[in-house]
């Protein structure tokens, strides 16, 4: 792969990933945050492919973005969907 394309792809991935991560932290709706978090993992698994780590990419895609999000959603359903007050406290 051309190095410039590589850098451009990686930059794009990281910008997306950081933007999603900031949204995860800022979102008051925990379910939304969990889904955004799974997006972070999904992009991370693309970065793993860029880094020539297909095994890790597979594990990250299935564990990080699928299972983690699911158990988060289950836990949120057992508790409270919205962050109380958030930053004010």
């Amino acid at each position: 792969m051309n190095e410039l394309v590589f850098i451009a792809l990686a930059t794009l991935m990281f910008i997306l990933m950081i933007a999603l991560a900031v949204m995860v932290i800022r979102s008051k709706d925990l379910i939304k945050a969990a889904i955004l978090l799974s997006g972070v993992s999904l992009i991370a698994s693309f970065v793993f492919v860029l880094l020539r780590a297909p095994d890790v990419a597979m594990a990250e895609a299935s564990i990080g973005s699928a299972l983690t999000a699911i158990i988060l959603v289950f836990a949120i359903k057992k508790t409270n969907r919205f962050e109380e007050g958030g930053e004010e406290k």
């Binding site: 297909p54 095994d55 990419a57 597979m58 594990a59 299935s62 564990i63 699928a66 299972l67 699911i70």
Partner: peptide, 24 residues
């Protein structure tokens, strides 16, 4: 995936997780 762990990407962990997501 877990039978071909020594040949191609993937292996016990990834295969196990795929099965778990099927069960899900």
């Amino acid at each position: 995936v877990f039978l071909h762990g020594h040949l191609s990407p993937g292996g016990g962990f990834q295969g196990g997780v795929i099965i778990a997501s099927g069960m899900l």
